[in-house]
């Protein structure tokens, strides 16, 4: 029971991170039918931005504790979001009317560029966040000791997800994003500036990914220039699991994948940690290729 609760909470915390990153994949896919292969690297960029802010700008002396962590997340949100917008302008918009493959190659190129830029700037060796901003306390849950940071990580990603969910479903601009995802031509006919919506999606998706990067840095303390590869892949699988293009699906898929991975590692084999994600991917592709929440309502033509 203790092991189970530990792994469940751990899985939810990691799953929250997967979900945040998965949202970026799924939103971009939703409006452009494109996999943004550079998305995992934007996540890494968020982690390194947090590192730089803490280490180089002397922020570590000024800020501390929860408010400091919150500020870091906010700065990563904004900065990585803006990088996302620039990425779309530079790498994807010029190829909007070209064939699929060109965009895929451009996405891979952008990924390699970002990864190598970070390696040049920060070196190939892992970096360690210079200060532990988060409290080290823990609390008891049904007789099991749960670290406070784990709850914080999970609730922060949950809060960001709810914010996005509200924005997408309850605001005018959120409705416009959904409309562009459903039918770009029809969206143009009602007067939606589709380019602006695409820019906005490239602001929101990477912003959430960047926030996830800082959160991982704060939580684990150590970051590497290629961490986006692993997290990005897992999040991509999570997005497919939930149904690519579907926003609640990405949230569900991320949390589910985190839990499956954690429980699988605990009860079956540690060495197979990454294999579980692929096992889930293969199973979902066989059993339900549209993902858990994909194509929930068929459009009647």
């Amino acid at each position: 029971m203790e092991e189970f609760l530990q792994q469940l909470t751990n899985g939810l915390a990691v799953g929250g991170i997967y979900a945040l990153i998965a949202l970026g994949y799924t939103m971009v896919y939703g409006v452009l039918r494109l996999i943004n292969f550079a998305h995992g690297d934007l996540f890494t960029l968020g982690a390194y931005l947090g590192f730089t802010l803490l280490a180089s700008f002397g922020l570590s002396g000024v800020i501390g504790g929860l408010a400091g962590a919150g500020l870091l997340v906010l700065m990563a949100l904004i900065f990585v979001g803006l990088v996302g917008v620039m990425l779309e302008r530079a790498a994807y918009r010029p190829l909007r009317n070209s064939d699929r493959l060109s965009a895929v190659v451009s996405a891979l190129g952008a990924s390699i560029f970002l990864q190598n830029a970070m390696m040049l700037l920060y070196g190939a060796r892992p970096q360690v966040y210079p200060v532990r901003l988060l409290p080290t306390a823990s609390f008891m849950l049904m007789g099991v000791e749960i670290p406070f940071t784990r709850v914080l990580l999970f609730s922060s990603s949950l809060a960001l997800m709810f914010l996005l969910f509200w924005f997408i479903n309850r605001t005018r601009v959120g409705a416009a994003i959904r409309a562009v995802a459903i039918d770009q031509g029809a969206a143009k006919l009602v007067g939606i500036d589709v380019n602006r919506i695409i820019s906005l999606v490239f602001l929101i998706g990477p912003a959430l990914g960047g926030a996830a990067g800082v959160m991982v840095g704060l939580y684990y303390g150590q970051i590497t220039h290629d961490m986006g590869l692993n997290y990005g892949l897992k999040a991509f699988i999570a997005a497919i699991l939930g149904g690519i293009g579907n926003i609640p699906g990405a949230m569900l898929g991320g949390l589910l994948l985190g839990v499956i991975e954690a429980l699988g590692t605990a009860y079956f084999a540690v060495g197979w940690k990454d294999a579980f994600a692929f096992l889930v991917l293969i199973l979902i592709l066989i059993v339900r290729p549209t993902g858990l929440l994909g194509e929930r309502v068929a459009d009647k033509i």
Binding site: A175, R178, A179, I182, A186, V190, R296, V297, A298, D299
Partner: peptide, 17 residues
């Protein structure tokens, strides 16, 4: 070309975007 997964009201509101 209505927005199939959105409500009738949402479709109309988008018309006034």
């Amino acid at each position: 070309r209505v927005f199939g997964t959105m409500s009738v009201l949402e479709n109309l509101q988008l018309g006034a975007y």
